[in-house]
Amino acid sequence: MTQFWRLTTQADFALLGNVVEHLDAVGLEAMSSWSLFDEGDIARLDLIFTEDPDIEVVRATAGFPAEMELSCAPMPEEDWVRLSLKGLKPVEGGRFTLFGAHDRDAVADGQIGIEIEAGPAFGTGHHGTTRGCLIAFSQMLDAGAVPTSILDLGCGTAVLAIAAAKALPDADILASDVDPEAVEESLENCRKNETPGIDCFVAEGLDHAKLAGRQFELVLANILAGPLVELAPGIADILTPGGKVILSGLLTEQEAMVRTAYEAAGLSVHRQPPLEGWETLVASKT
């Protein structure tokens, strides 16, 4: 069984959010995932490693302030799965319920179930960004939208692509991520959720032959504020007239920056209610 180490720190949510964005830009050797928890007056950031990390190297690489206390300890071999299964209860996001295999009987009548197993990977759906996207997508469906061409950009575990495939089984759905391991996990989740028609592939942003010349009625982009800003003109270009993009992965203090980028690209932007300090925007092309 793989041994994991958990490095933990507590601080202001916005400060830790900035650290997370920097982390995703620079990367950390042997880090398998991170989780940011809003716990009221103070937030907690957990970094999970597959090797015992050098705390000072992590501090310097991730940009943690010198005075911030970082603690690291090995996780008992049985701890990760046991605690994950205990703590990750089914989560509802609009008309969708995300669950682990241990909770297959917990999906309420009328809800669309998506099975995402607990494990050392980000994207089980318990994060406010994923829930925010699912709620926004549900509202679009409730309003009568039936997009037939959909791109899950930066798909992670493919939660959003799977949600789209289950709600709209006739849609043409693509899912891309810069991380080959994420794409492998996405393919496994598609198989497990009986949505094999989703085309999952590795791509750096919008740079891929499968995206060349394509336009989509809906783009799902749950990534981070920096990449969202950089991709704004390209995302606007690949939307069909009347198309929409659901944006998340941004902190409240980053909302104005991202909104401005998409308005500058010619889209009208609607702000969803924030969840756990994270924002979701829905931008439309006229």
Score class of each variant (00 low, 15 high):
L228C: 09
K210E: 14
L187G: 08
I223Y: 01
T240V: 12
L187W: 03
Q215I: 08
A256L: 14
K210A: 15
S268Y: 06
H208P: 00
S186E: 04
G213H: 12
T280C: 05
G249E: 01
I198C: 07
K285E: 05
A203W: 06
S268H: 07
V282L: 10
P233C: 12
N189S: 09
K210I: 10
V282F: 02
Q215K: 09
L281M: 11
G205E: 12
L231K: 01
S284F: 03
L228T: 01
E253I: 15
N189H: 07
A256K: 09
S248V: 10
L211E: 12
L218N: 01
E279P: 04
L247F: 07
Y262H: 01
A221G: 08
C190E: 06
L281A: 04
E263Q: 12
G234K: 14
L187A: 12
G205H: 13
I223K: 05
L267Y: 00
E230V: 14
T195K: 03
V269A: 02
I223A: 03
A225M: 12
G234W: 05
R271W: 07
G205I: 11
V269L: 09
I235N: 02
A264Y: 07
G226F: 05
S268K: 10
F216L: 07
V269Y: 08
L231Q: 03
V258T: 04
L250Y: 02
P196H: 08
L275M: 15
D199T: 13
R214Y: 06
Q215M: 12
L281C: 04
D199Q: 14
L206P: 01
C200K: 03
A209N: 09
A283Q: 01
G277V: 05
L206N: 09
R214D: 00
V269T: 06
E263M: 13
R214G: 00
Q254P: 04
T252C: 13
G243L: 06
V258D: 00
